[in-house]
Simulated scan of single mutants.
Amino acid sequence: MKYLNELKKARWLSSFLFLIALFLVTGMVNPDFLTYSNIVTSFNGSVVFTLLAIGIAFVIMTGEIDVSIGAVMGLTATIAGQIAKRNGSILEMLVFAVLIGMLVGAMNGIGVSFFHVPSLIFTLGINGALRGLIYVVSGGKTTENFAGAFTKIGNQVLFAEVTIYLAIIVVIIAVIHLLLTKTKKGKYFIAVGDNPNGATLVGISVMKTKMLAYIICGIFAGVAGVVFASKYGQVNIVAGTGYEMSAIAACVLGGISLSGGLGNILGAAFGAVIMSSVSRMLVFIHLPSNFNNTLTGVMLLIIVVADALVQRHAVESARRKRLLSRTAAFDAKVGGKK
């Protein structure tokens, strides 16, 4: 019973059920969708979005935002493609991706947590700078004509149609989930997002926690760029554009509050599968792919509005409970004097 009650309170459960509902509805319209192969393909195709969603989840849980992750992904994907063209190693690509992600994450963290610049404004500026850098690095051209082991591994099946990347992602999600829920420092991100002043009073450094969140976010965005280049075999100059919005929507859809302090990685992962599967579902229900951005935008609006309403209800409910408890205490005190 205890575990059942905890399961009911799990915010990620709603995104999991929503994912199942979407699959079932699509299957009702087109029964060909509900096959093992199609479902596994939907999960295999979500790895890039999942990496982005996991990274930005750390930032959102602290109550901030990062709209530069799409540009970070585009830059590291371009560099990975150029390294692949000269037959460089995957290890070299990952080193570049991690270093670039750490650098951009540190810059965002300093701007937001040290200089107290609004996170949306600062990361938007970083996004613009990185987009310009992508043009410089790529020469304004699509990075293509790279093949070999790098592109083969992107779609290499490990078992039962599950790709290597998906298997690694599942392991990463499990490890991060345990770290965030079972370790003391892992809970700092939620604590900072929930109550920064309270976190400071109990000895948690808000600045360091937000810095770490942005660095982790940058690293995951950088690695997502390498995975993107590996899976698709080419990188155009606008690669990653709009991905930040889908990653944010995935997190909120997965139960992570935009105001911080609520949510977990499992919800972000399920939300990423939903957001990445929209275009595939459109094909099976015979709607043009032009509806993809429209549906994604509508879903984002609905999710954000719903989250705002839930947060408002939670605040008002907590305020009502405090008022009732104070009134009861006052009545008890007055009654005792009589």
Rank of each mutant, 00 (worst) to 15 (best):
Phe291Ile: 01
Asn5Gln: 15
Lys85Trp: 04
Phe220Ser: 06
Ile79His: 01
Gly267Arg: 09
Ile303Pro: 00
Lys187Glu: 03
Val227His: 07
Thr209Trp: 05
Glu6Cys: 06
Ile215Arg: 03
Arg319Asp: 13
Val59Lys: 06
Thr35Phe: 12
Thr183Gly: 06
Met275Cys: 06
Gly242Glu: 01
Phe270Trp: 11
Ala106Arg: 00
Leu51Cys: 05
Met299Gly: 05
Asp307Ile: 08
Ala191Leu: 11
Tyr36Ala: 10
Ser68Ile: 02
Thr76Leu: 06
Ser205Glu: 07
Val175His: 12
Val226Phe: 02
Val235His: 00
Gln156Pro: 06
Ile168His: 07
Gly271Glu: 07
Ile204Gln: 11
Gly233Pro: 01
Val59Pro: 02
Phe33Asn: 07
Tyr3Trp: 12
Leu180Cys: 11
Val47Ser: 08
Ser317Met: 09
Val273Gln: 06
Leu13Asp: 09
Gly297Arg: 00
Gly233Lys: 03
Gly261Asn: 00
Val206His: 09
Lys338Ile: 14
Leu309Gln: 13
Leu34Ala: 12
Val226Met: 09
Thr76Val: 09
Val298Ile: 15
Val171Tyr: 08
Val278Phe: 01
Lys208Thr: 11
Ala174Glu: 09
Gly111Phe: 02
Thr123Leu: 06
Ser257Ile: 04
Leu120Arg: 08
Val298Met: 10
Val40Ala: 12
Val192Met: 03
Tyr165Ser: 11
Val252Arg: 04
Tyr188Glu: 13
Gln311Asn: 15
Asn38Trp: 14
Gly222Glu: 08
Asn30Phe: 12
Phe115Thr: 10
Ala97Trp: 00
Ala221Val: 00
Arg11Pro: 10
Ala84Asn: 06
Gly27Ala: 05
Ala268Leu: 05
